[in-house]
């Protein structure tokens, strides 16, 4: 019988909540942490974290899907940390819990929307992070982004509603310059130079970085190779996984989008695990 999942409380005073999914079969040397996208509890948008965790388990990767302080089933924090620092402390507690149960001490962290920003910050702060996946995280428009966005919108117009929709299509393109795609958090997004330096640092450290953009953020990311245009000549570009996926939407509403997200995530996580050495021994798992 395959090992079952386990609901856990952990962290300071066990205020945090999560569900551990053990590796099925030979365990890979990295574990995976999944957590909230915005205010959606740990199962993720349309249960994508559950699907991802179970698919990773079948590939030998143990996961913890968890709620950050004050979200889902986790109690509010009692510390005075500002929200970003608290989120990182929570995620570090999650990695430690997963280590206690599975024995792995290296991790990949998957972040959707606001979670992508936390994953990015965590990777810069904690050397245990060996991979981050950022889905609709920071975006960096180029001079081509808005014209392509508007052009693609115009192609979709129907003649009968043309005047109104032309106006709407053009107006929708003027969405400002903020790089963060999250509508939940207000942390300042990194500048291009900061992002470039951070990504260079991460890939130099051997951190696997996966950057994906959905078809829901056209105003900020509207074509393949946009990342390469935004960071022309940057060193990190040769080492990151990057994809513009217009068939997927921001919250993965369709089952087809969910399948593609899970497949891409598992493929990347397994490749990352293989880059991180030999299979870890199965821990004597007890919660």
């Amino acid at each position: 019988m395959k090992p079952g999942e386990l609901g856990v409380r952990f962290g300071p005073s066990r205020r945090l909540a999560g569900v551990l999914t053990p590796a099925h079969g030979a365990q890979q040397p990295v574990g995976c942490v999944l957590f909230n996208a915005g205010v959606v509890h740990r199962i993720g948008p349309h249960r994508i974290n559950v699907q991802t965790a179970r698919a990773l388990s079948r590939q030998g990767i143990a996961t913890l899907r968890m709620d950050l302080s004050g979200i889902g089933d986790s109690a509010p924090a009692q510390s005075t940390l500002e929200p970003r620092a608290q989120a990182l402390a929570d995620l570090q507690a999650g990695m430690s819990r997963l280590h206690e149960v599975s024995g792995v001490d290296r991790f990949v962290v998957v972040g959707i929307c606001s979670a992508a920003e936390h994953a990015y910050a965590l990777a810069l702060e904690d050397a245990r992070v060996r991979g981050i996946l950022m889905f609709d995280g920071f975006a960096f428009p180029t001079p081509l982004t808005r014209p392509i966005c508007r052009f693609r919108r115009l192609l979709r117009l129907r003649v009968a509603t043309l005047p109104r929709r032309v106006t709407q299509a053009i107006m929708d393109g003027d969405a400002g310059d903020a790089a963060s795609l999250s509508t939940v958090l207000v942390h300042p997004a990194p500048s291009r130079d900061e992002f470039r330096a951070a990504l260079d640092q991460l890939v130099d450290r051997g951190v696997a970085v996966n950057i994906m953009y959905s078809g829901s953020v056209l105003e900020r990311h509207s074509y393949s190779w946009q990342l390469h245009h935004a960071f022309r000549g940057a060193r990190f570009l040769d080492d990151v996984d990057y994809a513009y996926l217009p068939a997927l939407d921001h919250t993965l509403v369709t089952k087809a989008a969910q399948r593609e997200f899970v497949e891409r995530t598992v493929d990347w996580a397994v490749r990352t695990a293989r880059r991180n050495g030999t299979t870890a021994p199965l821990a004597s798992a007890s919660a």
């Binding site: 019988m1 090992p3 079952g4 999942e5 386990l6 609901g7 856990v8 409380r9 005073s13 066990r14 205020r15 909540a17 569900v19 551990l20 053990p22 089933d73 986790s74 109690a75 149960v101 798992a285 007890s286 919660a287």
Partner: peptide, 28 residues
């Protein structure tokens, strides 16, 4: 892994009573 979470301190017990203890149940 065992089937129930461990609660090992008075503070944790008090907190759990308020915010809930995760558990698994039902047929195998």
């Amino acid at each position: 892994m065992t089937a129930t979470a461990v609660i090992d301190s008075p503070d944790a017990r008090a907190l759990m009573r308020s915010v809930g203890v995760p558990l698994h149940f039902g047929p195998v």
